[in-house]
Design a protein around this nucleic acid. Structure first.
Length: 489
DNA sequence: TAACGCATAAACAGGA
DNA sequence: ATCCTGTTTATGCGTT
């Protein structure tokens, strides 16, 4: 099964749009693998890609599951060996792909230069580089003297979302930020004040009533206001240094990409890989996939919530609009072709209908204006929802949600649709590959209960694989996420 | 230029 | 008394 996923992933990697139309699948795959491994050494996805690329039998089985970690997990980059880190200059992948071939070496080496500058600033005293160089992929463990390019809102959001119960006391928020962004270990202590200030003032965050008998010390638990969660997701999406941006840039060159035209008439080079408001955001899906990956040990409610929220966001984003990108699938079909877009559009409409049915009382909180992302100032939608006195009333921390799976089961044409888009993705119910035939023959010997468990497990993996594949190709995968949700039912 | 988002600093109150 | 948490106000900077 996992090998099958790997093959699918490789297929999609090969499908991913290339900058050079005549570039081979192999070279494209190699580019992706190099890109990921160089920019984010140790990341689960890059390891998984490396395993598949090299067909390395020594790779752990776990590494073949590229969705075992989320964007947040990626942010939790292990402390990498300094030597290795130096070798893996963050921009080398750009050079490899001719994206920086027109830029002066001094520019290319800005990563190191900025680091040296940061070191100098640090030695000078209390100076910390206030901003991270816009053209250097940010590595929180490496650029420990660069202020993270994330707002405090995003940092808090990530911390809370990365917690098991999506609620944290302020002290743990501090800890999460310190652990993931060593910059703050040496930064002036004012940042804690800023965190508290943000928690208090930012409407995205709400205090949770402490459970009785729960001893967390002083203070309350903080969680994300579900009404504002899409805003935070969008704000995070617009953050230019997300680990998956490089993958995004390779797999889905954006027509909205801002380009800097070099003077000698050479090819333009991308500036900060900033997303436009309607572009596809792959990093949303690793986040979702984390919840999927956690599904083995948690109930489905959180998954439902994330699927809903992310899909809700993406539907609203009209994220199918990979506008103008003449990407082609492996069978030569133009992603921008009418037939392709029509099929995706059908799925989009299906999703839309579903979510309108399910969450018709909840406003769509997706903005195209950055100023609407954050909520120091009140926005109208915030008052539409029910003013529950306790956040627990709005935000279920673990109750089962049965309705959603039932509604999703109505989406009968999903499988066929998926097969149209990518014929290699197996149908979760009826279509059986030869590989699965063998599998099913063995399954027949097992008790029905055990078989059901195994099937559920397998479906999760299928969906995760499909998610990864589509993400790599820059295709919206809320559909596959919803499929996964249905598979839980 | 104004409005806004955001960061930062500071004062203050209340609780552990 | 001290520290932590939470709230509020003020200010400055950058962006739109």
């Amino acid at each position: 099964m996992r090998e099958n996923d790997c093959l699918q992933l490789m297929h999609l990697v090969a499908m991913a749009p290339t900058r050079n139309s005549d570039e081979s699948d192999a070279s494209m795959r190699e580019r992706l693998v190099n890109s990921l491994s160089q920019s984010f050494p140790g990341s689960a996805l890059s390891k998984a890609l490396s395993c598949m690329s090299a067909e390395d039998s020594e790779c752990d089985d776990d590494m073949k599951d590229p969705l075992s970690s989320s964007c947040f997990a990626e942010l939790r980059l292990d402390k990498v060996d300094i030597e290795d880190d130096d070798e893996l200059t963050s921009l080398s992948w750009l050079q490899d792909n001719d994206l920086l071939k027109n830029i002066k070496p001094s520019d290319v080496d800005d990563d190191d230069d900025s680091q040296k500058e940061n070191d100098n600033n640090h030695r000078d005293g209390n100076h910390f580089n206030p901003t991270h160089p816009p053209h250097v992929p940010y590595n929180p463990q490496k650029h420990i003297h660069s202020k993270p390019p994330y707002s405090f809102s995003c940092l808090i959001f990530m911390a809370v979302e990365d917690s098991p119960h999506k609620k944290l006391p302020v002290k743990d928020i501090y800890s999460w930020i310190l652990n993931h962004f060593p910059y703050f270990q040496n930064a002036p202590t004012g940042w804690k004040n800023s965190v508290r200030h943000n928690l208090s003032l930012n409407k995205c965050f709400k205090k949770v009533d402490k459970d009785r008998g729960q001893s967390i010390g002083k203070g309350s638990l903080w969680c994300i206001d579900p009404d504002y969660r899409p805003n935070l997701l969008q704000a995070l999406r617009k953050t230019p240094y997300h680990p998956y941006h490089q993958l995004q840039m390779l797999a889905n060159p954006q027509p909205t990409q801002q380009y800097h035209y070099v003077p000698n008439g050479m090819r333009p080079m991308p500036l900060t890989p900033r997303f436009g408001p309607n572009t596809i955001s792959p990093h949303l899906f690793p986040f979702l996939s984390k919840r999927l990956a956690q599904s083995n040990s948690s109930d489905n409610n959180d998954i439902d919530r994330d699927i809903q929220d992310v899909a809700h966001t993406l539907v609203s984003l009209k994220g199918l609009g990979n506008r103008g990108s003449p990407a082609r699938s492996s069978d030569g079909e133009d992603y921008a072709s009418n037939s392709y877009r029509m099929r995706l559009k059908r799925k989009q409409m299906q999703l839309k209908t579903d979510f309108v049915k399910r969450r018709h009382t909840e406003p769509i909180v997706v903005t195209e204006v950055p100023s609407d992302d954050h909520t120091y100032s009140l926005t109208n939608f915030a008052n539409i929802g029910s003013p529950a006195s306790s956040i627990d009333e709005e935000y279920d921390f673990g109750e089962e949600d049965d309705n959603f799976s039932e509604e999703c089961s109505d989406m009968s044409d999903w499988d066929s649709d998926m097969d149209e888009v990518d014929g290699d993705i197996p149908n979760k119910h009826t279509k059986v590959t030869p590989h699965k035939n063998i599998h099913n023959s063995n399954m027949a010997k097992i008790t029905s209960r055990k078989r059901k468990e195994m099937e559920e497990e397998e479906q999760k993996k299928i969906v995760e694989g499909a998610d990864a594949l589509l993400n790599l190709a820059g295709i919206m995968t809320n559909s596959s996420s919803l499929k996964s949700n249905r598979s839980h039912s």
